[in-house]
């Protein structure tokens, strides 16, 4: 009897594993050193350029419908003259136990083999559940059919879908770049080198605060940075197991 129960438990364990894979090929992660980050927002524009994020205009911003997949949060604490201003870049945390994946009824958001929490725009029916369940407020919705004034549309990245009205979207860890580099490595019959894949934000970050890499590779830069004693994750107590690791800012 107990054997049967164990078997069921084992089954359930598999089932509960995000994405329902026995194991993942990679664990892509971003380490953000908040002590390096100076809040310059280069990453934000880089993300706009790479991922075809629409510009929503003044009214859109007023309505809080900005498409900043990556946002720099700014907190001002204290009273004059002891003021502390703190910055932190927040993007999709690519949670291992992602609440959004539970919510989506149509599997538009799910875990892929690379350990990424991906969004399939074509499957999305727009129930907003993922965005509501997301504790990090990183999901963005296509409220309208956004247009680019010609010829601004010529800049659109052909590697990234231009999303249609009514679908949810979010930071993908620049999955098109991950795919591109992996394919190239496959063609060359070699392994992907650490640092070969760079997300748009990590690539442009002037201070080097953002580092992208594979946590499954113990020699990678992110693995080493992630082991830092300054490391923490956002709202770790929610047990979402985020893949974005922050390093604490040194501040007196």
């Amino acid at each position: 009897m107990s054997g049967v129960i164990d078997k069921i438990k084992e089954r359930l364990k598999d089932f509960r594993r995000p994405g329902y894979y026995k194991e993942f090929d990679h664990h892509y992660a971003i380490v953000i050193d908040v002590d390096r980050c100076n809040g310059c927002e280069a990453c934000v524009v880089s993300c706009y350029a790479e991922n075809n994020l629409p510009v929503v205009g003044e009214q859109g911003c007023e309505d809080n419908r900005v498409f900043n997949w990556l946002r720099i949060e700014r907190y001002i604490e204290g009273e004059y003259p002891d003021v502390k201003v703190k910055f932190i870049p927040v993007m999709c945390q690519q949670c291992d136990a992602a609440p959004c994946e539970i919510g989506c009824p149509v599997y538009a958001t799910y875990h892929n083999q690379d350990g990424l929490n991906v969004q399939v725009y074509n499957r999305c029916v727009g129930t907003f559940t993922c965005a509501t369940y997301c504790p990090y407020d990183v999901r963005r919705f296509n409220w309208f059919s956004y247009k680019w004034d010609k010829p601004l549309d010529e800049q659109l990245n052909p590697d990234v879908t231009v999303r249609e009205m009514g679908v949810m979207e979010k930071c993908t860890f620049c999955i098109q770049r991950i795919r591109g580099v992996n394919d190239k490595a496959k063609d060359g019959k070699r392994k992907v080198k650490d640092g070969e894949i760079q997300t748009a934000c990590a690539q442009s970050c002037p201070t080097g605060a953002i580092t992208f890499g594979d946590l499954m590779d113990p020699e990678s830069k992110v693995s080493k940075l992630a082991a830092s004693k300054r490391g923490y994750k956002l709202f770790e107590n929610l047990e979402t197991k985020p893949s974005v690791i922050y390093l604490k800012r040194v501040m007196d």
Partner: peptide, 24 residues
């Protein structure tokens, strides 16, 4: 009314389909 793409509402129905996708 609340759905972003209500014309695809039937995707939430569990039925065998050519999308080869079961619902969650």
């Amino acid at each position: 009314v609340h759905m972003g793409r209500p014309w695809n509402f039937y995707w939430t129905m569990p039925y065998p389909n050519q999308r080869l996708l079961w619902v969650n």
